[in-house]
């Protein structure tokens, strides 16, 4: 059964089509990733699926409820962790969670028990009565994850769950998300522009660029789809035609000054390749990662440094809290 079903979901702003006729179905219990650069339309998609933004056209159903016709029921079925800090930093962790519990009509008797349970899940029991302002960026994120789980949603949305966090904290948050998926039947949808994050966490990944899904499969299949290992060559007069004729070469693409090849079992065939290639200035071989997949489908790389100024602000505001 599909818990999420979007049919030609579209959001247009005056000149820009942020999300362009997106079709999506996500099965119950899946961890599903929307991977793409900033401005690809990931957050806009999430906002439409969570009823915070009205689609220009198209439709979507969440947990069997239509986002336009039954927004309240959709909202009761989902939990959300936003990209930007969304807790009140003057309140304590407990108070932020209590506010959430009341908003979601959790029976008063159960509120404290449930708060303790979700805080334990993200190792924050000890900081329960501390004011959020004193939290590090990672702790605040964990608290917001705990809060999103408080009302036991069927579907959990995470918008860039580790943006602006240091590698160690990122690792921790991945652990929490994985455990969550293992221990509950929850469907998890996350957006990210970190290749590694999508690779490590997701059962399936939709690569999204300029509002469109350009590829959708499991990370393994996406990588396998490239036809082998990636070899980069650089040289003045490479014998491109000869290289093309080699039986183990699956694809040849020019990438600026480099020649990018997809090769079966590069470890075994590299020697033979170099023999026919001509004079080599530079060679590099690696197993494909999602970066290569992204490059293959969009002709561009997702580079972290192309992060918007808003990203940098976020990183700063998080760092400031440490």
């Amino acid at each position: 059964m599909n818990t999420i079903e979007a049919v030609s979901l579209t959001k247009k702003y005056e000149k820009l089509t942020a999300v362009d006729a997106l079709n999506l179905s996500v099965k119950k219990g899946e961890i599903f990733g929307l991977l793409g650069p900033n401005g690809a339309g990931k957050t806009t998609t999430l906002m439409m699926l969570s009823t915070l933004l009205k689609p220009t056209s198209g439709s979507a159903s969440i947990n069997g409820f239509d986002v336009l016709k039954e927004p309240s029921k959709v909202r009761a079925s989902i939990g959300m962790v936003f990209q930007d800090p969304s807790s009140d930093e003057i309140l304590t962790a407990y108070e932020n969670l209590k506010l959430h519990a009341l908003l979601y009509n959790i029976p008063v008797k159960e509120i404290d028990i449930k708060i303790d349970r979700v805080l334990a899940l993200v190792d924050l029991q000890k900081r329960k009565n501390d004011i959020v302002k004193t939290f590090s960026g990672g702790m605040r994120r964990r608290m917001e994850i705990a809060r999103g789980l408080l009302h036991e949603p069927k579907i959990f949305f995470l918008d860039e769950p580790t943006i602006g966090l240091d590698p160690q904290t990122r690792e921790h948050i991945w652990e929490y998300i994985k455990n969550l998926a293992r221990e509950t039947e929850m469907t998890i949808i996350l957006t990210t522009h970190y290749m590694e994050e999508a690779d490590r966490l997701c059962d399936r990944v939709a690569i999204i660029d300029a509002g469109k899904i350009v590829a959708l499969d499991s990370p393994e299949n996406l990588k396998r789809g490239l036809g082998g290992d990636i070899v980069l060559l650089k040289g003045a007069n490479l014998a491109v035609e000869e290289i093309r004729k080699l039986p183990f070469v699956k694809a040849v693409e020019e990438q600026g000054a480099y020649l990018q090849l997809s090769i079966e079992e590069s470890g075994k065939h590299l020697q033979e390749l170099l023999k026919v290639a001509g004079v080599i200035e530079f060679v590099q071989a690696h197993s494909p990662d999602l970066n290569d997949v992204f490059l293959h489908y969009t002709g561009r790389e997702i580079r972290e440094e192309e992060g918007s100024s808003m990203d940098r602000l976020r990183a700063i505001s998080r760092a400031k809290n440490k």
Partner: peptide
């Protein structure tokens, strides 16, 4: 300005 308002508006309340 922060996402606090979204957190409130996404709750199943009018």
């Amino acid at each position: 300005k922060i996402d606090f308002l979204k957190e409130v508006l996404i709750a199943p309340l009018s």
